[in-house]
């Protein structure tokens, strides 16, 4: 799956260029008008989707889908920008580790929240953790915007690694059920 996504990322047109109405300048941008993007994506899929158009090429439809997912999800968007603009592949174990080493406290913080979540038994408490985590992610996403604006790739990479951990937690929180063991899927 990951490998397929990666392959898509290397296709000749950037994910930004596939949505010319949303990204008029045709260059990368951290800030995305998600509503506009969604509209453009749907309009394009209406033309390309095999269900709508028997003559269309289904690979084009799935390319669009991957581009849309990449742009829609902050973590994937940040990884994509770092990979294409700074040559930093954070999906690579080695690269991401080197970056993560700069912040040894991060793991402690992540483990701490996971252990909190693990000890909870009421949905109400889990919602609190979920909200706190969302806030944390929002702050990171904003700070990422500043780092990208300044082309501060190291800082952006650091923040993206952190976002990776909190995105995993976000998924764990969504799948939480009383008494169920936590598992992260990726």
């Amino acid at each position: 799956m990951l490998r397929i996504v990666c392959k898509r990322l290397y296709s000749s047109r950037s994910v930004f260029q596939q949505f010319p109405r949303t990204f008029r300048s045709r260059i990368w941008s951290w800030n995305v008008d998600l509503r506009g993007l969604r509209k453009e994506y749907r309009d394009l899929q209406a033309l390309e989707h095999p269900d709508m158009n028997a003559n269309s090429d289904s690979s084009r439809s799935s390319e669009l889908n991957h581009a849309y997912q990449t742009l829609k999800q902050p973590l994937l968007r940040a990884q994509y920008i770092l990979e294409t603009q700074a040559g930093l592949d954070l999906r690579n174990e080695q690269t991401s580790r080197e970056i993560a080493q700069q912040d040894p406290e991060l793991l402690m913080r992540v483990l701490d929240v996971h252990e909190q979540l693990e000890s909870l038994s009421s949905e109400q408490d889990v919602k609190v953790i979920a909200r706190e985590n969302r806030e944390r992610m929002n702050v990171i996403e904003q700070t990422l915007g500043e780092a990208f604006a300044q082309h501060d790739w190291d800082r952006a990479a650091q923040l993206t690694v952190e976002l990776r951990y909190w995105t995993s937690l976000d998924r764990a929180v969504k799948e939480w059920e009383p008494g169920k063991r936590l598992e992260l899927n990726h």
């Binding site: 954070l90 999906r91 690579n92 174990e93 991401s96 580790r97 970056i99 993560a100 991060l106 793991l107 402690m108 992540v110 483990l111 996971h114 690694v161 990776r164 951990y165 995105t167 995993s168 937690l169 992260l184 990726h186």
Partner: peptide
């Protein structure tokens, strides 16, 4: 020992 896999978010 506390280790993480920053590529996939495991701790």
């Amino acid at each position: 020992g506390l280790v993480g896999a920053p590529a996939c978010g495991d701790v």
